[in-house]
Design a protein around this nucleic acid. Structure first.
Length: 562
RNA sequence: AACCCCGUGGUGUAAUUGGUAACACAACAGAUUUUGGUUCUGUUAUUCAAGGUUCGAGUCCUUGCGGGGUUGCCA
C-alpha cells in the first residue's frame, strides 16, 4: 500500500527524467551520487541533495539503482579527513546508506591524468604560462569576448613534456596550468579555455605528497561520474553554466559512460545562515558553541537541537524539487518537527520558572499521593507513570496572575485551576517579599476532583506542576531562531542580525524525578512548554542538560501579544 | 545594454501534458480538550503583464516585465 502510494506519488521533474530513462532502457541501472567536498560540515541544504540522490536510488532499488557517496577532494588546500567521518555520520543519521559505494575523486587521479594526456594528444588541451591575473584579463567579460593566450598553440610534444614537468614538480605553484582548448569567444565564460589542472604543492589528505598538480572541479567531476557509471549527476543551479563544459569533457574523452548533469534549486530556509564560510565564521568568532551548536544550520547542530531526521526528510519531501529559486519558510520545518515529536515524545512535567504553592488543607506534611500520568496521549503503547503529589508544589510563574485579563484560565486570587493529572486547587492567599515579588501562593485543593470535574462549576485551566520535595533539578537551554531577519545573508553584516535571545540558559529547573536518568539525544515534551532533548555534549549521567528543540504552539501567548 | 535559468494564494508544491486551478504550511474564526498542545470544521487568498493560436490556455507562440545565476588556478 505504502509502496503503491510511493510509486503513484507526484514525481518531480528529475524523477520524471529518471523514470523515462528507465522506461526507455537507456541505462543498465540508475546510479546517482552525493558528492560532498570534505571541507566543512553538512547543513540542512545538503539534506535536500542527500534525500534526492539516495531517495531516487531507494525508490528504484528493484531495478538495481544505487547511490554513491563520493568525496570531491580535488583541492588539498581546503580539505581535511576529519570532515570525512563527520559527513558520513550525518548521512547515516539522516537515514541513508551508501553500502559499499564509498569513493573519492582522488581515487581517480591517475585515470584523470591519463585522460588529460589524451586531450593534449588530440590538440584539445594546452599548458599555459599566463598568470592567474593574466588569465582573468584574457578571459574577457560578460559582454566582451576573450583573447587567446600566446601559449595556446604550443605543439603537442611541448605540451606533453611541459605537463609532465608540472606533474614532476618542476614548477612552483601558479606558474603553469593545463587548459582545455575550446573557444575564447564563447558566450559561456566556462567554455573560454577553462583550467583543468593547477599546480599545488600541498599534502593531500589521502594521496599525501604523491601529486603536486590537482584537477579542478570541472575536470574531475564529470569524469568521476563516468568512471562510476553515474547516470544522473544531480547538482544545484549554480552549476548550470558548467553543463556545456561537463558535456564537452565527457564527449571528448574515451570515458566508459555518458552521465547527464541535471540541476535543481537549493533549499533555503528562512532565519538560517547556510554558507560554509559564514558557518565557519560563526564558529571561529565564538558566536556559537562549535559546528554542532543547536543554533547552527548544520545537520550536527540540528541533531543536537533535537530535530528528528524524519522531520528533515519530511521537509525535503514537502519542498519538492524544482528549478525555481525558492525560499522555504522555517515554519514548514518546525511543523515537520512538531508533527514527528508529537507522535513520539514522552510527556513530562517541568517547571522552568517556579513559584511555590502550599496546599493548606493537605492532610499532613508528609502525606504523598501518587498520580497517574499518561506518557503520550498520541501513543497508547507508551503507557503511563506515577507522579508524586505532596502539600508543596512548584508551578510556573506564568501560570499565575494577580490581576488577570479576561479569559485567563490559569491561577489568580480566588480562582481555581486543575493541577494536571491531579486535583483542582483554589488560590486563597498571595505572599510577596518586600520587593513585591510573589514568592508563595496558599491554596486549597478539592479532594473530590481527582479524575473528575466538579459538578457545580467549570474549571477550564490545567497547569503543570512538580512536587517540591521530589523535584529533580537540572539546567535547561531555551533555543530560538539564530537570527532576527529572514535572510541574514542579505545583511551587510550578518552579525548585526544575530538574535540576542537565541539562547537562554536556565539553571535548576524543577523536574519530575524520572528525568534524572535519561540518555543523550532522548526527546521529551515538557507539557505546555515545548519539545526538549538531552544535550549530547554537556550532559553527564544523572546530570542532564535539556535543549529546547521547538516550543509548543501557543495561541494564548500569540493572542496576548496582539 | 551579454548569455543561461526561473515566474501558480503570504510561503512551498501540484494540475491526468490543451479541458472546473488543488494540497501542505502560515493567517483568521469556531468546536473539542485534565497540555491555551493535539484533533476536527470553516474562512480569506493564486496562474507576472499584454497580445496571439484554439470551441477551450497555468500549460503552446510572441513581446514585455520581474527574480536568480555567470567574469576562481573554489566546489
Amino acid at each position: 500500500m505504502a509502496k503503491q502510494q510511493e510509486s503513484t506519488a507526484k514525481k518531480d521533474f528529475i524523477r520524471e527524467i529518471v523514470a523515462a530513462d528507465i522506461l526507455a532502457g537507456r541505462h543498465k541501472t540508475t546510479v546517482t551520487r552525493f558528492p560532498p567536498e570534505p571541507n566543512g560540515y553538512l547543513h540542512i541544504g545538503h539534506a535536500k541533495s542527500i534525500c534526492l540522490n539516495f531517495g531516487i536510488a531507494q525508490e528504484n532499488q528493484d531495478s538495481g539503482a544505487r547511490c554513491h557517496l563520493r568525496f570531491d577532494d580535488t583541492n588539498p588546500a581546503k580539505e581535511e579527513s576529519e570532515y570525512v567521518e563527520a559527513i558520513k555520520d550525518d548521512i547515516r543519521w539522516l537515514g541513508f546508506d551508501w553500502k559499499d559505494h564509498l569513493y573519492f575523486a582522488s581515487d581517480y587521479f591517475d585515470q584523470l591524468y591519463n585522460w588529460a594526456l589524451h586531450l593534449i594528444g588530440e590538440g584539445k588541451a594546452y599548458v599555459d604560462d599566463l598568470s592567474a591575473v593574466e588569465i582573468r584579463e584574457y578571459r574577457g567579460g560578460l559582454t566582451e569576448p576573450g583573447k587567446e593566450s600566446p601559449y595556446r598553440d604550443r605543439s603537442i610534444e611541448e605540451n606533453l613534456s611541459l605537463f609532465e614537468g608540472m606533474k614532476n614538480g618542476e614548477f612552483d605553484d601558479g606558474i603553469k596550468v593545463l587548459r582545455a582548448k575550446i573557444d575564447m569567444a564563447h558566450a559561456n565564460l566556462n567554455m573560454r579555455d577553462p583550467v583543468l589542472y593547477r599546480i599545488l604543492h600541498k599534502k593531500h589528505h589521502r594521496t599525501g605528497d604523491q601529486w603536486c598538480i590537482y584537477p579542478t572541479y570541472d575536470y574531475a567531476h564529470g569524469q568521476s561520474d563516468a568512471i562510476e557509471g553515474v547516470t544522473h549527476s544531480l547538482c544545484t543551479l549554480e552549476f548550470e553554466h558548467h553543463r556545456p563544459l561537463y558535456d564537452w569533457l565527457v564527449g571528448n574523452l574515451p570515458v566508459p559512460a555518458r552521465p547527464r548533469q541535471i540541476e535543481f534549486a537549493k533549499l533555503r530556509p528562512t532565519y538560517f545562515l547556510m554558507s560554509k564560510r559564514r558557518l565557519l565564521e560563526m564558529v571561529n568568532e565564538g558566536h556559537v558553541d562549535g559546528w554542532d551548536d543547536p543554533r547552527m544550520a548544520t545537520l550536527s547542530g540540528l541533531r543536537r537541537r533535537g530535530y528528528p531526521p524524519s522531520a528533515i526528510r519530511k521537509l525535503c519531501k514537502t519542498v519538492g524539487v524544482t528549478k525555481f529559486n525558492s525560499v522555504t519558510d522555517v515554519a514548514l520545518l518546525e511543523h515537520a518537527v512538531r508533527e514527528e515529536l508529537n507522535k513520539t515524545a514522552m510527556r513530562r512535567m517541568v517547571v522552568i520558572d517556579p513559584i511555590k504553592v502550599t496546599i493548606t488543607n493537605w492532610p499532613g506534611g508528609d502525606h504523598v499521593e501518587m498520580m497517574n500520568a499518561v506518557n503520550n496521549p498520541e501513543d497508547t503503547g507508551a503507557g503511563s507513570r506515577e507522579v508524586a503529589l505532596s502539600g508543596e508544589v512548584f508551578i510556573e510563574r506564568t501560570d499565575f496572575m494577580e490581576d488577570p485579563p479576561k479569559k485567563y484560565f490559569r491561577l489568580s486570587p480566588g480562582a481555581e485551576v486543575r493541577l494536571r493529572y491531579s486535583y483542582c486547587i483554589r488560590c486563597n492567599e498571595v505572599i510577596k517579599n518586600e520587593d513585591g515579588k510573589v514568592i508563595e501562593l496558599r491554596c486549597t485543593y478539592d479532594p473530590e476532583t481527582l479524575g473528575k470535574n466538579p459538578p457545580d462549576r467549570k474549571v477550564r485551566g490545567a497547569i503543570h506542576w512538580v512536587s517540591c520535595r521530589e523535584a529533580f533539578e537540572a539546567d535547561v537551554r531555551l533555543y530560538d531562531r539564530a537570527f532576527i531577519v529572514e535572510d541574514p545573508a542579505a545583511e551587510d553584516d550578518w552579525r548585526e542580525a544575530i538574535n540576542p535571545h537565541a539562547l537562554t540558559e536556565l539553571r535548576g529547573c524543577k523536574m519530575e524525578p524520572v528525568l534524572k536518568d535519561v540518555l543523550a539525544g532522548e526527546c521529551f515534551q515538557f507539557e505546555r512548554t515545548g519539545y526538549f532533548c538531552v544535550d549530547s555534549k554537556h550532559s553527564a549521567p544523572g546530570k542532564p542538560l535539556f535543549n529546547r528543540t521547538v516550543a509548543l504552539r501557543d495561541s494564548w501567548a500569540k493572542n496576548q501579544s496582539k
